[in-house]
Amino acid sequence: MTTTFQPPSLFETFCTATFRVLLDCMARPGTIGQIPEPSMFTNIPTITIDQQPVIANRFALTSCLSLLDQETRFAQAANSSWIDPQSDINRWVQLRSNCRLSDAPNAQFVYLWDSASSALLHELNPGTLTFPEQSCTAFIAVPEINHTEPTWRLQGPGIDGYCDVGVHGVVADFVTHINATRAHFPLGIDIVCIDTHGKCLALPRTCQISLK
């Protein structure tokens, strides 16, 4: 049979492969997926925190970017404060996705550079009863995710009973901040945590998290 399609670009291949990881992780909270290497993105601008340059988690930032286009509004935060829309890092994301830069309450996607920024989750749009799907999705960079040293117990749709998972190097209030976003289902923020190796853990608003 003849095929009549254009071979996908490296970026399109990355977007599709990344989406399938996000899909599997979102459908099965507790599953740890592997985000593919975003090799087409080089020279991601650093940001400065306390006069020190900080490098983005390239897996977390680019997997968020893979869902952005001119229809979506985006914001990012580091060290518990929102990053200026005019900054190099925001313009870098905008140039590669055509997304619109936004303030926190109107953002549909946010990238949080660290777990400390989870203190800002309460500023995001949780959707409405009629349109709960209009809520924000937050990608959060964390140091390490594994199954070998569990710290959390997860329950909810997508999980056969319960699932234990380890999220390491995060601030003490992380789970408190996340749980506060989903106290009023169907409203809520859907969250994707990605570690420095590209390990991915999705926490849809249906997912109940308790500390082990």
Binding site: F19, M26, S66, E71, T72, E133, D190, P204
Partner: peptide, 16 residues
């Protein structure tokens, strides 16, 4: 862009 829109809505559908 059409794919991305469908993908975003699928992720929300799974969360709801």
């Amino acid at each position: 862009d059409s794919k991305r829109e469908v993908r975003r809505q699928i992720l929300k559908a799974i969360a709801l």
